[in-house]
């Protein structure tokens, strides 16, 4: 596999391999010299058509720890905001000599379009496209779960039988999509929870269970509860009546938190709306692995960049 566009493209072996390489990358972060010479002389472009400081910083840190040169190309204030096309931007990057492109775009499929066209001949990493996918987020989530469960013995393991509940705006969530395909590939039992307005059509054909009520899902003794960010504008579009009603029905409040096992992980891809989908108590509790997720993001992105950029040919074998 030459590009990372969707977690649906990953086999179980490939997914485990990425997580294993990320373990090695995580070790680097514990050393005095937190840097590897692996991608010295390579140039990674962070092509961000949509603002996301968190994701961009994470990719930037990952590339720099591998000694790659990093060019940040963000839409705001650049020629892109003046109407330059993806094609022109890609050809410009090719002329500059980019060896890898990390792309974030508000249009679903933009990374696939970039990968399919001859505008630039470099591996493409999808850093979030529209409401389609966000593969490195799902990988870092899986990595976080695996590390928590298996510690130092995590290498080589899948997530067979791990029960993961994903709550919130599944319809618009690229994080949810990438997680569903990846977690299912790794053997986890995934349960999606949302009001019917926020569930995608055909979700019952996905490799998941579906619950309409969070309280029902919490009775299944989950190992992981992943809360998705809910965006305010969804209210205007009549996906739910009010923030208060959403928080009451689907928020992880203190009372619901109390019903979880002490070792159940609470995850959130960030940024969090405290008091809406997640209470401050849940976000700051010992069950929360939100900061682990952030730290692990760098390891996962190092692994992906290493696998796609270091070799001469096939990328993720």
């Amino acid at each position: 596999m030459r590009h990372l566009l969707s977690t649906a493209d990953l086999t179980r072996e490939q997914a485990v391999r990425i997580l294993d390489v990320a373990e090695d990358m995580a070790d680097v972060a514990t050393r005095e010299v937190k840097k590897l010479p692996t991608l010295r002389g390579r140039t990674v472009v962070n092509l961000f058509f949509e603002d996301s400081t968190r994701t961009r910083i994470s990719f930037e840190a990952a590339a720099k720890r591998l000694s790659a040169d990093v060019i940040n190309f963000s839409a705001k204030g650049s020629s892109v905001s003046k109407g330059e096309s993806l094609k022109d931007t890609a050809q410009t990057l090719a002329a500059i000599g980019a060896d890898g492109v990390v792309i974030r775009h508000s249009a679903s499929g933009a990374p696939a379009v970039l990968a399919a066209n001859a505008w630039i001949d470099a591996p493409v990493v999808n850093a979030g496209d529209g409401t389609h996918e966000h593969p490195t987020q799902a990988l870092l989530d899986a990595f976080t779960i695996r590390r928590r469960l298996h510690g130092a013995g995590a290498r080589g393991r899948s997530l067979d039988g791990v029960r993961v509940v994903i709550v919130g705006d599944i319809l618009h969530s690229r994080v949810a999509r990438s997680n569903v395909w990846l977690l299912a590939t790794l053997g986890a039992e995934v349960r999606l929870v949302a009001p019917a307005t926020l569930l995608p059509l055909g979700v019952r054909d996905w490799p998941v269970e579906v619950d309409l009520h969070l309280d029902d899902a919490l009775t299944t003794n989950p190992d992981v509860v992943m809360m998705l960010r809910i965006q305010g504008e969804r209210m205007r579009d009549a996906f739910f009546p009010s923030a208060r009603e959403y928080a009451r029905e689907y928020g992880l409040d203190e009372e619901r938190l109390g019903r979880l096992r002490a070792d159940t992980m609470v995850m959130h891809p960030g940024p969090m709306n405290r008091g809406l989908e997640i209470s401050a108590a849940a976000a700051d509790s010992a069950r929360s692995v939100v900061l682990d997720q952030v730290a692990n993001g760098v390891s996962i992105r190092m692994a992906v960049l290493y696998l796609l950029l270091s070799g001469a040919e096939e990328g993720i074998a």
Binding site: D24, D27, A312, A317
Partner: peptide
């Protein structure tokens, strides 16, 4: 001591899986 990440022939060969150090 894994040396994969420090090799000078990475770009000439298919991607190598690193080993734990």
């Amino acid at each position: 001591l894994d040396v994969t990440m420090y090799r000078d022939d990475l770009s000439r060969n298919p991607t190598r899986a690193p080993h734990p150090t």
